[in-house]
Amino acid sequence: LEELEQFARTFKQRRIKLGFTQGDVGLAMGKLYGNDFSQTTISRFEALNLSFKNMCKLKPLLEKWLNDAE
């Protein structure tokens, strides 16, 4: 759980530094990986307001997006 919290904080910082909005991330993930995510989902991930199971599902996709975006 602590690792997920740390990743969520780091993800938000890096996303902002790269100049992407939460909506940009959701749209890009849909185009790149075929998984559409709303701005609300990205927001809830960053705020740790998703279930642990959903956080675990999203983490690898967000890590991949972040690596591809950098």
Rank of each mutant, 00 (worst) to 15 (best):
Y33D: 11
D36S: 10
L18K: 04
E3M: 02
L66D: 02
E5L: 07
N54M: 15
K64M: 07
T10Q: 14
L48V: 14
K57Q: 12
E46Q: 00
T10Y: 12
I42M: 06
R15L: 01
I42C: 02
L32K: 14
Q6I: 11
M29W: 02
S38R: 11
T41D: 14
G30Q: 15
L18Y: 05
C56N: 09
S43E: 12
P60Q: 07
M29S: 02
E5N: 04
C56I: 07
D68G: 09
E3T: 05
A69V: 08
F11Q: 00
Y33Q: 08
M55D: 02
R44Q: 15
R9C: 07
F20Y: 06
Q22S: 07
E46F: 00
S43G: 13
K17H: 04
C56A: 12
E70Q: 08
Q39H: 06
L48C: 15
Q39E: 14
M29R: 01
E46A: 01
Q39D: 14
K57C: 09
G26P: 03
K57Y: 07
E3C: 04
R14C: 06
Q39A: 11
W65P: 02
K64Y: 03
D68I: 04
L4C: 01
L4N: 01
R44A: 15
A8H: 01
A69M: 14
K53D: 10
Q6M: 14
L61W: 14
K31D: 06
K53T: 15
W65L: 03
C56W: 10
G34Q: 15
G30L: 10
Y33R: 05
D36H: 13
E46M: 00
M29T: 08
M29L: 15
L62K: 00
G34W: 04
E46R: 00
K59I: 13
T41N: 09
A47V: 06
L1I: 06
N54D: 15
R15P: 00
E70V: 11
K17A: 10
K64V: 10
F20K: 13
I42N: 03
I42G: 00
G34L: 04
D24N: 07
P60E: 06
Y33I: 08
F52W: 12
E46L: 00
Y33M: 09
C56K: 14
S51Q: 07
L1N: 14
E2D: 15
T21Q: 04
G34D: 09
P60Y: 02
E70L: 09
F52M: 07
G34A: 08
Q6R: 12
A8G: 03
E3V: 08
D24F: 05
T10I: 10
E3K: 04
K59M: 09
K59Q: 07
R44C: 09
D68V: 10
Q22P: 08
A8D: 01
S51K: 12
L62V: 10
E46G: 00
I16N: 13
L27M: 11
M55S: 09
C56L: 14
A47E: 15
N35V: 07
L32E: 13
A69I: 14
G23E: 11
A47Q: 14
S43Q: 15
Q13I: 11
G23K: 14
L50E: 14
D24I: 01
L66I: 14
